[in-house]
């Protein structure tokens, strides 16, 4: 009988009201009347016990079902939330990009308008020199801040963009090594050693540039967690069902338990203002999910953090692949 059977199991509260109980009690009463009190009492006790056990079971099943449905609706809410946030982010980014473009052009025009003043400066006017220096400084600052804004809007659009993978047979170990080699120079400068633990991997089809983006992002995060130096372990291994796993583990301070379920949320950051937009991990997770895989984080107190990318043997869905051309890298 699977899962306790039809009488008591899945039907939950109904089981307690099932017509079996009056029957059993009736039988007990009958037994008491005909065969003396003892067997009847035993039967009644047995029936009582079965009744108690059944109600406990059905309460447990009910609780489990409730938890499962909670979990499901939480996932649903989460994915809806992400979609809504993506739309919002894209909308804001587009709206902000237009005025940013105008500000940039105006600042450039201001620079051009200064040319006659520059001529006066060359002719030896100290007033012109001071005026010029201040204006140039101001324009420079405007440009820097505009760049900062466009960096944010670019990331917002990147986050909002539908991940449309273009799948190619890929040598993932080589791809990971390319990114490790890129990060290694800077890692060495901050006393960080990268330990490579590459395993034998089956050939997979995935989107190489998207995967590069994710691996580089995780390596960069690990470096930032190791400001005072440490180690980064980069592991690749074959997993079940032709899947592969890529792990980036650092020996940094780790992620506080309270942050673990938030780090993939867009705009969640523990970095100082201006140092990070909090979109890197959100984008990375979206990409990996778009490739048909998962990106998860683990952290133990004082034992650093680990991020694991799991990828299937073949990436993405057919539908998404076909739209690759239209969506791919439109340069926002």
């Amino acid at each position: 009988m699977p899962d306790g059977g039809g009488l008591l199991g899945p039907s939950g509260p109904l089981a307690a009201r099932s017509p079996v109980w009056p029957l059993l009690l009736g039988l007990a009463a009958l037994a008491a009347a005909t065969a003396g009190p003892w067997p009847g009492l035993i039967l009644a006790l047995a029936a009582g016990f079965v009744l108690w056990w059944a109600s406990r079971r059905s309460a447990g099943a009910l609780r489990r079902a409730r938890e499962e449905s909670c979990e499901l609706s939480e996932q649903l809410i989460q994915s809806q939330k992400m979609a809504a946030l993506g739309e919002l982010a894209a909308g804001i980014a587009h709206e902000i990009n237009n005025p940013l473009g105008i500000i940039t052009q105006e600042a450039e025009l201001l620079g051009l308008a200064l040319e006659p003043v520059e001529a006066a400066q060359r002719d030896g006017s100290p007033l012109a020199a001071a005026f010029l220096a201040e204006l140039r400084d101001g324009i420079g600052e405007i440009m820097r801040q505009v760049n900062r804004c466009s960096d944010i809007t670019h990331k917002m659009l990147n986050f909002a963009r539908k991940v449309a993978p273009v799948c190619q047979p890929s040598d993932v170990n080589r791809l990971v090594e390319d990114m490790v080699a890129l990060v290694e120079r800077e890692a060495t400068k901050q006393d960080t050693r990268i330990v490579r633990m590459y395993g034998e991997l089956p050939r997979v089809t995935t989107d190489p540039p998207l995967l590069r983006q994710v691996v580089l992002n995780l390596l960069n995060n690990a470096m930032q967690a190791l400001e005072r130096g440490g180690m980064i372990f980069v592991t690749t291994r074959a997993a079940e069902d032709g899947q592969i796993a890529i792990e980036v583990r650092d020996t940094g301070p780790g992620i506080p338990a309270a942050h673990l379920d938030k780090i993939f949320n867009p705009f969640f950051t523990t970095k100082a203002p201006g140092m990070g937009t909090g979109l890197g991990l959100a984008i990375s997770q979206r990409i990996v999910v778009g490739l048909g895989g998962t990106l998860t984080a683990q952290s133990l107190p004082d034992a650093g953090a680990a991020f694991v990318i799991r990828l299937p043997a073949t990436c993405g869905g057919e539908g998404e692949r076909r739209h690759g051309a239209a969506d791919q890298g439109t340069g926002h």
Binding site: H154, Q213, L216, N217, A325, Q328, T330, G331
Partner: peptide
């Protein structure tokens, strides 16, 4: 958008790598 770009650099930096990949470069060498 369909033209593929391979970035080539003598002074590779993580920052330019991240930017390059996010702007749709195919590879960074």
């Amino acid at each position: 958008p369909t033209v593929q770009v391979i970035l080539l650099t003598g002074h590779g930096s993580v920052k330019s790598g991240i930017e390059g990949m996010s702007y749709g470069a195919y590879d960074y060498v």
